Simulated scan of single mutants.
Amino acid sequence: MILLLSTSDDTNLDHVIDWLKLQAHAYLRLNADDVMEEPLHLSLQPPRLAFRGHEVDLSQVGVVWLRKFGNFRRSAFHARAASRLRRESLLQLEREHASLLTALTSLLEDKHWLTHPSRLRVNKVEMLLKAQRSGLLTPETHVLNRGEDLSRLLAGGEYISKSLFEPLFLKEEGGLYSMFTRTLEPEELPRMGEHFFPSLVQRKVEKEYELRVFYLDGECHTMAIFSQQSERTRQDFREIDWTRPTRMVPYALPMELEEAIRRFMRAIGLNCGSLDIIKSTDGGYYFLEVNPSGQFGMVSHPCNSFLYEKIARYLIDHDLRAQEAH
Results as ranks from 00 to 15, higher is better:
163 S>M: 05
131 A>M: 04
123 N>W: 03
192 M>V: 01
135 G>W: 06
173 E>Y: 07
147 G>L: 08
143 V>C: 12
176 L>Y: 00
152 R>W: 05
139 P>N: 02
161 S>Q: 10
119 R>E: 13
134 S>Q: 07
185 E>K: 14
161 S>D: 01
175 G>I: 02
193 G>K: 09
175 G>P: 08
159 Y>C: 08
144 L>A: 04
119 R>Y: 05
149 D>W: 10
189 L>E: 11
140 E>T: 14
160 I>P: 00
124 K>N: 09
131 A>D: 08
120 L>Q: 15
112 H>S: 09
161 S>V: 14
144 L>T: 04
120 L>H: 08
123 N>K: 03
127 M>L: 10
143 V>T: 05
129 L>M: 12
174 G>E: 14
170 L>Y: 12
116 H>N: 11
193 G>E: 11
160 I>W: 00
195 H>F: 05
181 T>K: 01
175 G>R: 00
196 F>E: 00
195 H>R: 12
179 M>E: 15
159 Y>E: 01
178 S>N: 06
158 E>M: 03
155 A>Y: 01
183 T>P: 09
193 G>A: 10
153 L>H: 09
141 T>Y: 10
195 H>V: 12
172 E>N: 11
113 W>H: 06
180 F>W: 07
118 S>R: 13
183 T>H: 10
145 N>E: 09
183 T>K: 15
126 E>G: 03
137 L>H: 13
136 L>P: 01
147 G>R: 08
170 L>N: 04
127 M>K: 00
126 E>V: 14
139 P>A: 14
185 E>M: 11
170 L>W: 04
189 L>F: 11
